[in-house]
Design a binder for these strands. Structure first.
Lengths: 194, 194
DNA sequence: TATAGCATGTAATTAGTTACATGATTAA
DNA sequence: TTAATCATGTAACTAATTACATGCTATA
């Protein structure tokens, strides 16, 4: 009889998100979801449903261990990485193949077809895109930075802060880009081009 | 008896992608998929399966009309926007609510957890991210720009070119950002920081 | 003559979201 | 006492991908 050597499971990126958060010391499923909302969500979001499902799968696969840790009468599970889980996380971080980024940006899609709009409508679309990009940059600065700085304080992990800076920078850049485009459109419409 | 007034269907963004491509003069499902691969794919990708399914739904909903247009013995359908389809497209372009961009970037997710790696491994990860961003910027310049310029030639639609410029600019910016980060990491490791 | 590209579709699967259900604890 | 937050999960659904199947046409 072969023993129950846990067959190396094929993990999706969301699973590594769980493993990584566990490694950063976030214990519960609820905590992971909340941490994601204040850290990785602008480049990798998730939902409660996915978090709990994924944690179950990883536990079944032996990559983490669950322990009851109720608070008062409120049930609660905290998880810890197993040796296999730590190994899987590091293997992933080192593996050569990285999936290309996938983006779904309705705003840019509208911009692509914006020739169907009047000049005024084009300008107001671009204004919207700019405002949205600014708002996201602000959200990152107001909501994601503080947690990242907290994590980084006193020799803790510093890359969460690095990615927060990346996000803020990218959306600020986007906002400037749309502002420039808006200026160009307004100039074009007022006849400097014709 | 009520007549068969086509109940206003709730359309997803992929449906507007079809309508918009049709408006730009791309006729067949195959052509739409190919056009997407050379234009919107870096902010809104799709697959053959989705294109054909979506075109059927839109035809059933009366937003476009199908016409047989075989080439020799090879069957082929070309589609045209109906009045309702044109209206739906414009309503969407003007509608106030724009979904926030959704991103799945495995590379950035790895960067977020990169504290688990050695300094050398961190540098090589960032180098990879930089190379990937550069490659995508090149892909846009080499593959997406030419089609956009073709479309824009002679008073044609110009926003496809605008979005191509946006894409090239964003990925070039990302590449620079990763290059700067790499330099910082290398400096930190060689002891200037301690 | 064989490979790449044109052309259309179905089936199966995967990944992810939204809605729902339940209940405890903490702070206003 | 009521609202917000902590906490866990299931069910239903939606969106999208991958794999498969078929067959024609143009080019090297």
């Amino acid at each position: 009889m072969g023993s129950m050597l846990p067959m190396r499971m094929r993990l999706k990126n969301t699973a590594y998100l769980m493993l990584g958060m566990l490694r950063l010391g976030v214990g519960s499923g609820y905590g992971i979801k909340k941490a994601v909302d204040r850290s990785t969500r602008f480049f990798w979001a998730t939902s409660f449903a996915q978090v709990y499902a994924e944690l179950s799968r990883l536990e079944a696969g032996g990559l983490l261990t669950r322990r009851d840790a109720p608070q008062g009468n409120r049930r609660r599970s905290v998880y810890e990485l197993s040796a296999g889980g730590q190994e899987a996380l590091l293997d992933w971080l080192r593996s050569p193949r990285i999936e290309p980024p996938q983006v779904r940006a309705e705003g840019v899609l509208r911009l692509f077809f914006a020739d169907a709009l009047t000049a005024d409508e084009q300008v107001s679309l671009v204004r919207r895109l700019r405002a949205d990009a600014e708002r996201i940059a602000q959200e990152i600065r107001g909501d994601i930075f503080p947690l990242a700085e907290e994590i980084s304080a006193a020799e803790g992990p510093r890359f969460p802060l690095v990615t927060a800076q990346l996000g803020a920078d990218v959306y600020a850049h986007l906002a400037r880009w749309f502002a420039d485009l808006e200026a160009e459109l307004v100039m074009g419409a007022s006849g400097y081009e014709a």
